[in-house]
Design a protein around this nucleic acid. Structure first.
Length: 826
RNA sequence: GCGGGCGUGGCGGAAUGGCAGACGCACCAGACUUAGGAUCUGGCGUUUCACGACGUGGAGGUUCAAGUCCUCUCGCCCGCACCA
């Protein structure tokens, strides 16, 4: 074999071979347990970055390891290929978005192949391909049939830069998640998916996701934001209307001193019409409405309001309470109106202070001596109800229930569950997406495109300008169509779908990527799904991961398969950092994977990235660390090369019990390593410690070679074969090459994982730590398996121990066999 | 404010309650060499000539024994945040 390790030669050779042999193609096989490992598919921006390399390296180790363990492994890759950047490239450089996207895919696929990733390329999907988006459209129609897709006019998030609306999940701190520009509210008619209908199940089933990180589940829980309480009404006799309020604290209802409405509340105008307060209220409402989402919802913004001049009737007491309009009530949550209870809600307390509204104590804290006069803040805890008519004296927790019962009995209100989660706004005023398959007919209204007419193809002859309407609206051949119902002239919907829809079901398509009659065959999905291990960045904790869960539940309810949750185990990998910051063009700290591969090879890149940190943690890029990984592979190459072509590697049977001491030690290290690596990969995904123990094995081989030039026949073969197999998932090319050079003809990646031999790791002597008062004072080597009493007496025979114990009184002796003796003296 | 995570050598990071710092990087020394930024061998927490003492953000506690368990506290990171 070649004396020098030349990664480029080795890697190209085996990549070609794997592709030719279709080494990683997968079919259903009921003889073996199935395992589905999936990395979040990328947006084809054109080039892989280190975050991708990390993501795919992690997945590839899992895939290759599981395969060697005997699993039937599905490990696919594809492209989240619709989206804005393609369109921006078109606008900026006049390139066709489809061409731009397909070129990028070709380049990134090449880069992935150069990383030696074990994908089943026959299953590749691209969401922008008509064979794929046909089924995305089919999904839309399914949602429509089930009443889960609907159109409504609402105040929606509008991104001025992207010229499109956004779902709530895509607005981060009042800014667009993609371009970071400030989002404004616009009244528009848009398509929504009724995700709120699934809110409870999305929340409930989180409990079963034992393999998900706690923080992702918490984030979803917060996002769904379930709260329980009551909704009830205050009469406004003057205008014969009711104000409905929502509260989680019905037990504080006797503390109400005012009612507040959101500025957008439909009753505001009705209430103030013709009153002297009208002018001031209208001015206030206008001012608040014009504020940006950020300043509007910031907790720092001072609570402000105006009195409408109108009063409502308290349903319990019959008292008149003033109606105010304020900036701290949101129209989108609950009913857009709130009862003000200053004594027991800090926001109301602040508001009451500012406008000198009365405060009434209705929950007495356990200390029992609070009065409004002595309180300096609202009391939001629990306690005893006071000043609450017949409810006084009750503890407030049971009071909630009793108040609700009263409301229901008197027909004033009812118990209600509320969610922070809103319906998913799915239409986008953009070109490069899956067209929404709907038609507008003057006679028939909104008509879905018949499924047999799918896909609704994206036209290619598109012109871009920075207008405000959807680009598709300007393509007459696209817009004009005939109504599927009556045949008259009709217009197509010109919005496209949020790309998160495309990515909400791709993992199903992988199980049956070429199906031309259905999005997937349910038997195939049921065989492969759920994904056993999903790997990706935590930035999708709510977005993609929530939508995907929603989709899965809808498809299950539609009877398309029987999977309730898509991703059994989720690994959220950390970011790749350099000089303390995330790699980014603007920071100028980007290291290109292609350069690293060209210089050191893919195996080095993979080993470095997996060795430098555990997968969940952020990874600090280090050029010297890469050198270290490269050095390790060279060291491996040399030590294996040293034995290649020698008798050491002949496939002789041998008797491990005949080995000498050095040889037994080498064999012991091998088996300890097998155990450690198996545990580190299989149980904890601690790839960094797995690699470190493989390094120790290589070090042990060097140490052995120093001790003796020749080895018993068969031993080196066992060690080399084991070593290569253990490293194969991490560094697939170099191990494949060395395997062929030294062990056998077939691919190492089709081998079975090495088996740990318990007998091999047995030792006959063990070091015992001798402690006095918990401090290490001596160490002794003793035969393995000594009992506590023997150990204890041996400990006391040591000179050092005698000396230190001599004039003291032994209080206690703790013996941990195989480990230590601790003598407690006074 | 609420929720989650993290604090260990010069650095990345290891440690089922049982010898803190595995492995790697950097650094130092030796060997080999015309040469070495290659390779091999060894050293490498702080302090002390040494015995030893000290050491896992800080302060307490439990324990024969604590990086690990408990209480409090400081710092950093992430998520959510006027959600009634």
């Amino acid at each position: 074999m070649n004396e020098k390790y030349i990664p480029s030669e080795v890697e190209a050779k085996w990549q070609k071979d794997w592709a030719k042999e279709k080494a990683f193609s997968t079919e259903i096989n009921r003889q073996r347990p199935e395992y589905y490992v999936l990395e979040m598919f990328p947006y084809p921006s054109g080039n892989l970055h280190m975050g991708h390399v990390r993501n795919y390296s992690i997945g590839d180790v899992v895939a290759r390891y599981k395969k060697m363990q005997g699993y039937n492994v599905l490990h696919p890759m594809g492209w989240d290929a619709f989206g804005m950047p393609a369109e921006n490239a078109a606008i900026k450089h006049g390139i066709n978005p489809a061409d731009w996207t397909w070129d990028n895919i070709a380049n990134m696929r090449r880069q992935q192949q150069e990383l030696g990733l074990s994908y089943d390329w026959d299953r590749e999907v691209a969401t922008c391909h008509p064979d794929y988006y046909k089924w995305t459209q089919w999904m839309f129609l399914l949602f429509y049939e089930k009443g889960l897709a609907y159109k409504k006019k609402a105040a929606v998030n509008w991104c001025e830069d992207c010229h499109t609306v956004l779902a709530n999940e895509q607005v981060v701190d009042g800014r667009c998640w993609r371009c970071d520009s400030v989002v404004v509210k616009k009244e528009l008619e848009q398509w929504f998916f009724r995700i709120t209908e699934y809110a409870d199940r999305l929340l409930e089933d989180l409990k079963d996701l034992k393999g998900w990180p706690e923080r992702v589940k918490t984030m979803q829980e917060n996002w769904i934001g379930r709260s329980t309480g009551a909704e009830f009404s205050f009469d406004i006799p003057e205008i014969a209307e009711k104000i409905f309020v929502y509260t989680t604290r019905p037990d504080t209802v006797f503390g109400v001193s005012y009612v507040v409405l959101a500025p957008e509340h439909p009753l505001v105008e009705k209430l103030v019409a013709g009153r002297p307060e009208a002018k001031e209220v209208r001015a206030f409402v206008d001012r608040v409405k014009n504020l940006s989402e950020i300043s509007r919802t910031s907790t720092e913004t001072e609570k402000e309001g105006v009195f409408t001049g109108a009063y409502a009737v308290h349903p319990f007491t019959g008292e008149k309470v003033p109606i105010w309009v304020t900036n701290y009530v949101l129209m989108e949550y609950g009913t857009g109106a709130v009862m003000g209870v200053p004594a027991h809600d800090q926001r109301d307390w602040d508001f009451a202070d500012k406008y000198s509204l009365p405060k009434r104590l209705v929950i007495q804290a356990p200390s029992g001596d609070s009065t409004i006069e002595t309180m300096t803040a609202a009391y939001e805890g629990s306690g005893q109800m006071v000043n609450s008519a017949e409810f006084s004296g009750r503890d407030n927790e049971s009071g909630k229930d009793v108040i609700c019962a009263w409301l229901e009995e008197h027909g004033v209100g009812k118990r209600r569950v509320n969610y922070r989660l809103r319906d998913w706004l799915v239409s986008r005023q953009r070109y490069w997406g899956a067209p929404i398959p709907m038609i507008y007919c003057d006679k028939c209204g909104v008509v879905p495109v018949p499924k047999e007419a799918l896909p609704v193809m994206l036209p290619n002859n598109i012109s871009f300008d920075s207008g405000t309407v959807s680009p598709l609206a300007k393509v007459e051949e696209f817009v004009n169509c005939s109504c599927p119902n009556c045949g008259n002239r009709a217009r197509r919907e010109t919005d496209t779908m949020d790309t998160f829809i495309c990515s909400s079901w791709y993992y199903f398509r992988y199980t049956d990527p070429h199906n031309s009659t259905l999005p997937f065959d349910s038997a195939k999905v049921n065989y492969w799904m759920p994904v056993d291990q999903y790997i990706g960045g935590v930035e999708h904790a709510i977005l993609h991961l929530l939508y995907a869960r929603f989709f899965t539940k809808v498809l299950k309810d539609a009877g398309l398969m029987n999977i309730g949750e898509p991703f059994k185990n989720l690994l959220t990998q950390g970011m790749v950092i350099k000089d303390g910051a995330k790699m980014s063009k603007s920071k100028g700290n980007v290291v290109s994977p292609e350069e690293i591969i060209a210089k050191y090879g893919a195996d080095t890149a993979r080993v470095f990235i997996l060795f430098a940190a555990p997968p969940e943690r952020d990874l600090e890029w280090s050029d010297q660390g890469v050198e270290g990984a490269y050095r390790f592979l060279n060291r491996l190459w040399r030590i294996v090369g040293h034995y290649a072509g020698e008798n050491a590697l002949v496939a002789d049977e041998y008797d491990p019990s005949k080995l000498n001491k050095n040889e037994r030690e080498l064999r012991r290290v091998l088996h300890v390593t097998i155990r450690k690596v198996s545990e580190a990969i299989g149980e904890r995904f601690n790839f960094n410690t797995a690699i470190s123990s493989i390094m120790e094995l290589v070090n042990a081989m060097y140490a052995f070679r120093e001790l003796q030039a020749e080895a018993s026949p068969g031993l080196i073969r066992e060690v080399v074969a084991g070593l290569l197999k253990l490293l194969a998932p991490f560094a697939p090319h170099i191990t494949e090459e060395l395997w062929h050079e030294t062990i056998a003809e077939g691919s190492i990646h089709a081998q079975t994982w090495p088996v740990f031999d318990a007998a091999a790791v047995e030792v006959d002597e063990v070091e015992i730590v001798l402690q006095i008062n918990g401090k290490v004072r001596d160490k002794i080597i003793v035969p393995v398996g000594l009992g506590a009493s023997e150990l204890e007496s041996m400990a006391f025979e040591q000179d050092k121990v005698k000396e230190l114990v001599a004039d003291k009184k032994v209080v206690k002796v703790i013996c941990v066999p195989q480990k230590l003796v601790n003598i407690v003296v006074k």
